[in-house]
Amino acid sequence: MAWLILAAAIIVEVVATTALKLSDGFSHKGWALVVVAGYAAAFLLLAQVLKLQMDVGTAYAVWAGAGTAVIAAIGVLFLGESINLAKAAGIALIIGGVVMLNLAGGTH
């Protein structure tokens, strides 16, 4: 159950971060509301994951790493951001680290 809640926290955080870009410095109030609500929900979900006894290091690393990789992909695919070999390698390393944490386990 902890992994499903963590996945939800990652999805909500990705939506909030994407909305942060779209809010244009909080000048678009609708997107700004999505940012605030999304980050609040993401942290509440992450807190629930920790309450379910998942290791804080694993939970936070997976949450941050997966979120970073997905946001980087959204930036390239939908927001017109550039990608080069170094960025692609960095994203691959993040994904590899998340996979290794999952293989190593992360709950008590």
Score class of each variant (00 low, 15 high):
residue 81 E to A: 15
residue 16 A to R: 02
residue 85 L to R: 04
residue 75 G to S: 09
residue 47 A to T: 11
residue 68 T to D: 12
residue 102 N to H: 08
residue 92 A to D: 11
residue 6 L to H: 01
residue 70 V to G: 08
residue 32 A to L: 13
residue 82 S to E: 08
residue 62 V to D: 04
residue 47 A to G: 14
residue 77 L to P: 00
residue 94 I to V: 12
residue 54 M to H: 03
residue 36 V to M: 06
residue 94 I to P: 01
residue 75 G to D: 09
residue 92 A to L: 08
residue 79 L to R: 02
residue 75 G to E: 08
residue 19 A to H: 03
residue 61 A to Y: 10
residue 108 H to P: 08
residue 65 G to M: 09
residue 22 L to R: 11
residue 5 I to A: 03
residue 51 K to W: 04
residue 97 G to T: 15
residue 34 V to E: 02
residue 58 T to H: 01
residue 38 G to H: 04
residue 87 K to A: 07
residue 16 A to Q: 04
residue 52 L to D: 11
residue 7 A to P: 01
residue 19 A to C: 07
residue 81 E to F: 09
residue 50 L to V: 14
residue 82 S to H: 04
residue 21 K to V: 11
residue 12 V to N: 00
residue 102 N to L: 15
residue 30 G to M: 12
residue 7 A to N: 01
residue 85 L to E: 05
residue 76 V to E: 06
residue 39 Y to E: 07
residue 51 K to I: 15
residue 33 L to P: 00
residue 4 L to M: 09
residue 69 A to F: 05
residue 52 L to S: 11
residue 85 L to F: 01
residue 21 K to R: 09
residue 90 G to R: 06
residue 41 A to Y: 02
residue 24 D to T: 14
residue 44 L to A: 14
residue 20 L to H: 15
residue 23 S to A: 12
residue 67 G to V: 14
residue 108 H to Q: 04
residue 51 K to L: 13
residue 81 E to K: 12
residue 19 A to W: 00
residue 1 M to P: 06
residue 30 G to F: 14
residue 11 I to T: 07
residue 78 F to V: 15
residue 1 M to Q: 13
residue 67 G to F: 08
residue 13 E to W: 01
residue 26 F to E: 15
residue 107 T to E: 04
residue 78 F to H: 12
residue 50 L to H: 06
residue 29 K to Y: 14
residue 46 L to E: 06
residue 93 L to P: 00
residue 62 V to G: 00
residue 105 G to T: 04
residue 96 G to Y: 01
residue 6 L to S: 05
residue 59 A to Y: 10
residue 4 L to H: 12
residue 108 H to C: 02
residue 30 G to Y: 08
residue 106 G to M: 05
residue 48 Q to M: 12
residue 103 L to I: 14
residue 57 G to L: 04
residue 80 G to M: 08
residue 51 K to D: 15
residue 5 I to K: 03
residue 30 G to E: 10
residue 15 V to T: 09
residue 17 T to W: 00
residue 49 V to Y: 04
residue 40 A to C: 14
residue 63 W to F: 14
residue 104 A to S: 04
residue 72 A to D: 14
residue 5 I to V: 08
residue 58 T to N: 03
residue 104 A to L: 10
residue 95 I to W: 04
residue 24 D to S: 08
residue 86 A to Q: 11
residue 73 A to H: 10
residue 17 T to M: 01
residue 5 I to T: 06
residue 77 L to Y: 05
residue 108 H to E: 05
residue 27 S to G: 13
residue 55 D to S: 05
residue 37 A to M: 11
residue 57 G to C: 02
residue 11 I to L: 03
residue 70 V to N: 11
residue 75 G to C: 07
residue 59 A to G: 01
residue 74 I to L: 10
residue 4 L to C: 11
residue 8 A to E: 03
residue 71 I to M: 06
residue 44 L to Y: 04
residue 87 K to G: 10
residue 21 K to Y: 07
residue 16 A to L: 02
residue 50 L to M: 09
residue 95 I to G: 02
residue 38 G to E: 08
residue 28 H to G: 08
residue 108 H to N: 04
residue 82 S to V: 13
residue 36 V to L: 05
residue 70 V to A: 15
residue 89 A to T: 03
residue 79 L to M: 09
residue 13 E to Y: 00
residue 45 L to H: 05
residue 107 T to P: 00
residue 34 V to P: 00
residue 46 L to A: 15
residue 75 G to R: 12
residue 61 A to Q: 09
residue 72 A to I: 14
residue 38 G to T: 15
residue 100 M to A: 14
